[in-house]
């Protein structure tokens, strides 16, 4: 069933790791409890959409002044919507499983790559040279399940909405629901240490390595200076 869905939606195969030394490639997956966490969130959101539906149905039934036809139409609409939600239930349940399975967090010596998604497949590649900060967050339920989200941010705007709330920024690579966040953090920090010019960078600002011509000219100037010093 899920194989068929993946094929039908043309979800690409496992992502190729970015170029880097082959023995440095480490592939992390979401923790086993991440699936359970998704299920909990999914159940809650399902009930979250169910409650207002029921309340509005009760409200409409309580309106005695409404013409019977209008009331019947509204209730029929609500029943149809309810049926639609129930019909989608197995499908969205399968999606939770697939979303858990279709997740890859790849770390090489130079960069990281994150792949996730079923309907909309998203893949993000970032080099460590551009990374600004690492953040680990976990809520009470995630903590109970031994999970955490590890976020790696590059420079740039996480813009704020009209009320000052943070909008999810595409500058952030999120290792969602990993059960070894500390290990991944240590690994990334270790790799970051190799970039002294990490952060906002331009390779042109690194000390330029001289060309052969420049080195030869330099040698000539030095030889002339030596002769001048010797003949003085």
């Amino acid at each position: 069933m899920s194989r068929l869905l993946l094929k039908w939606l043309r979800v690409p195969h496992e992502p190729a790791p970015p170029e880097g030394s082959p023995d440095s490639i480490k592939i992390f997956r979401a923790g086993a409890n991440y699936y359970r966490w998704r299920l909990v969130v999914w159940v809650f959101s399902w009930f979250g959409s169910m409650v207002p539906l029921l309340l509005s149905a009760l409200f409409v039934m309580g309106l005695h002044k409404l013409p019977p036809l209008a009331r019947a139409l509204i209730l029929a609409g609500e029943v149809l919507f309810f049926a639609w939600l129930v019909l989608l239930l197995p499908f969205s349940y399968l999606m939770q499983r697939l979303n858990y399975e279709q997740r890859w967090y790849i770390v090489t010596d130079r960069s990281l790559r994150i792949r996730a998604g079923i309907w909309s497949v998203e893949e993000l590649t970032m080099t460590f040279a551009n990374i600004q900060d690492i953040r680990i967050t976990s809520g009470p339920l995630q903590k109970f399940l031994g999970l955490a989200d590890l976020e790696v941010a590059s420079a740039g705007g996480g813009s704020t909405g009209p009320k000052g709330e943070q909008i999810a920024s595409s500058h952030i690579a999120c290792f969602a629901g990993v059960d070894n966040a500390e290990q991944i953090r240590d690994l990334i920090q270790d790799r970051l240490r190799h970039y002294r010019d990490a952060g906002l960078g331009d390779p042109n600002t690194a000390p330029a390595t001289p060309t052969v011509d420049q080195a030869a000219a330099n040698l000539l100037a030095e030889a002339r200076a030596l002769r001048a010093a010797a003949s003085a």
Binding site: W119, S120, V121, E122, E123, T125, M126, N130, D202
Partner: peptide, 11 residues
């Protein structure tokens, strides 16, 4: 100057 590369696609 590229910071990150996203490869995105819907079904």
């Amino acid at each position: 100057r590229i910071q990150d590369i996203h490869l995105r696609s819907n079904a």
